[in-house]
C-alpha cells in the first residue's frame, strides 16, 4: 500500500464523490435551516427515523417505505409546531425527536427485538458506500439543488422576512413545507450513506463558517458549499494519512475551517 495513491482504492473514490455531493447538498440546505433557527433538524429527524424504522420493522414491511413518509410527516409537524403554536424551532425539533426516539425504544421493547440491529441499519459510513449509493447521492443532490435553485428567490424572501414575503404574495407556507420536506428526504437518505454525525455536522458547520466571512446571500451559499466540500476532501485525505476514522476527521476539519473564518472576522 502506498501512501500517495489512496485514490486508487474504489471505496476512497466513492467516499470522495458521494461525500462531495452530499456535502454540497447539506451546505445548501444548511444555510436556510441555520438562518431559520432549525439547525438541529438533522439530529431531530435522525431520531424520528429511528422510530419510523422501528414502526416499519414492527409491521414487517420494507422499513424505508414506512420510514420515508413518516419522517416527511414529522418534519411537517416540526414546521406546523413552529408556525401555529408559537413554539420555538428548537423546542419543536426537541418535541418531535423525543417522540421519535420514544416510539423506537417502545417498539423495540414491546416486540422483544428485531432481526437486525436498528442502529447499524440506520447509520452509514462514508468509507462503506456502494456504487448504487453513489448514484443515489448524485441524483439526490442534483434534484434538491435544482429545486432550491428554482425556488431560490422565494426561499430567500421567506427566510429573510416571512411577513414581508407573505405580503408580497409568496405562499410562505408552501415554501416552508418544501424546505422541510427536502430536508427530511435529504437527512434520511444521506444518513444511510454517510451517517448521521456527518449529515448533521455538514448541515451546520459550513453555514456558520460562511456566515463569518461571506458578503451577501449568494456568496454565503457558495462559501458554505466550498467549506463543506473542502472539509470532505481534506478530511478523507487526512484520515488516510493519520489512520483516523474518516467521518470524525471530516467533522474536525470542518470545525477548524470555522475557527479560521471566525478568527479572520475578528482580526479584520
Amino acid at each position: 500500500m502506498s501512501m500517495f495513491n489512496f485514490l486508487s482504492y474504489g471505496f476512497m473514490q466513492r467516499a470522495v464523490i458521494a461525500g462531495s455531493f452530499i456535502a454540497a447538498l447539506c451546505a445548501v440546505l444548511g444555510v436556510f435551516l441555520v438562518l431559520r433557527r432549525l439547525s438541529l433538524i438533522g439530529d431531530g429527524l435522525a431520531h424520528v427515523t429511528f422510530g419510523s424504522l422501528a414502526i416499519g420493522l414492527f409491521f414487517n414491511t420494507t422499513p424505508l417505505y414506512v420510514a420515508l413518509p413518516l419522517v416527511v410527516l414529522s418534519s411537517l409537524g416540526i414546521m406546523k409546531l413552529t408556525e401555529a403554536q408559537h413554539i420555538f424551532g428548537d423546542a419543536a425539533i426537541g418535541i418531535v425527536s423525543a417522540l421519535g426516539i420514544a416510539i423506537g425504544v417502545l417498539l423495540v421493547s414491546v416486540t422483544k427485538g428485531f432481526n437486525i440491529d436498528l442502529f447499524s441499519y440506520l447509520f452509514g459510513n462514508i468509507l462503506a458506500i456502494s456504487k448504487t449509493e453513489v448514484a443515489m447521492s448524485i441524483a439526490l443532490s442534483a434534484a434538491v439543488i435544482i429545486v432550491v435553485a428554482l425556488f431560490y428567490q422565494d426561499l430567500v424572501a421567506v427566510t429573510f422576512d416571512e411577513e414581508c414575503a407573505q405580503a408580497e404574495g409568496i405562499n410562505t407556507k408552501a415554501v416552508n413545507k418544501a424546505l422541510v420536506i427536502l430536508t427530511a428526504v435529504t437527512v434520511m437518505l444521506a444518513m444511510k450513506v454517510v451517517g448521521i454525525m456527518l449529515v448533521s455536522a455538514l448541515l451546520i458547520l459550513p453555514t456558520v463558517t460562511a456566515l463569518q466571512i461571506a458578503k451577501g446571500f449568494k456568496m454565503t451559499i457558495l462559501v458554505a458549499v466550498i467549506a463543506a466540500v473542502v472539509s470532505v476532501w481534506i478530511g478523507i485525505m487526512l484520515s488516510f494519512f493519520l489512520d483516523w476514522p474518516s467521518g470524525a476527521t471530516i467533522v474536525l476539519v470542518s470545525f477548524v475551517l470555522l475557527v479560521c473564518a471566525f478568527s479572520y472576522r475578528k482580526i479584520r
Binding site: F151, T159, K215
Partner: peptide, 28 residues
C-alpha cells in the same frame, strides 16, 4: 422582523421587493 444575522447585501434585500411581480421560476 428580520434576522439581523441574515447575510444579505442591501442590494439583495431590495431585489426581494421585485419578487411579487414575477412568475415561476423567478429570475432577476
Amino acid at each position: 422582523s428580520f434576522n439581523p444575522l441574515f447575510p444579505a447585501t442591501v442590494r439583495e434585500v431590495v431585489a426581494l421587493g421585485l419578487l411579487a411581480g414575477k412568475k415561476f421560476p423567478k429570475r432577476m
